[in-house]
Design a protein around this nucleic acid. Sequence first.
DNA 1: AAGCTGACCAACCGCGCCGAT
DNA 2: TATCGGCGCGGTTGGTCAGCT
Length: 224
Amino acid sequence: MGRTPCCDKANVKKGPWSPEEDNKLKEFIEKYGTGGNWIALPHKAGLRRCGKSCRLRWLNYLRPNIKHGEFSPDEDMIICNLFANIGSRWSVIAAQLPGRTDNDIKNYWNTKLKKRVLGITSTTTTSSSSHERINKPPIQMSSSSSSSLNTSTVFQTASLQQYYKMEDINGSVLMFGSDYNQNVDLGNYIFGGVLPYDHHNVYEDEFSQLFTNSSHEGAGKFMY
DNA sequence: AAGCTGACCAACCGCGCCGAT
DNA sequence: TATCGGCGCGGTTGGTCAGCT
């Protein structure tokens, strides 16, 4: 038993879209719209494609006002802030970035942005100072508020002049910084995407407590 | 020049949600 | 209320390309 297939897999084409297919889909939707039924659309448009595939192609590449290419520093900022607060809800993040798709943002995060952040958190010297978004090399701090706090890294974004602090606590990460004021338990990780850096000390104990009291199984894992 | 490796990204897969019946 | 079908989403895969050995 399993889930009923959304289409006849044997009779649909898979793989990269040809320019002809793109044109067919684009022209059909511009003329008739989606009709609120993606499953029926490929047949009507004369395409041997799964409805889901058509939807994806339209949403990610063919619809008007799609923005491709480099992400700006401000877009980076927004993605980092939102990810810190709501996690991998790419569609919500995409809604804050006009012209960007959830798939685009997801790929960008997974291939580039995540590595940047990781590079910062795992670096204990100046090796990450070459990063374009950091105008202040990460520095090591010793924690004053709790013996469970091992190391921490502070960095400052170039565009918004904000400070972040990322704490490695028992192998997981707490992240302070930006201008959000809620903590999000992401399962394996706790993010406090929070607080102007000036005020982080006020909350360190609270975050430590939050982590200590957390019942999730992810304790001990580092961020990605 | 050829083979290998890693980065990037388009596309697919399967699950959860929700509205219709 | 239960079931079904379609949509939307996030995770993952696989193809391509560039850089390195």
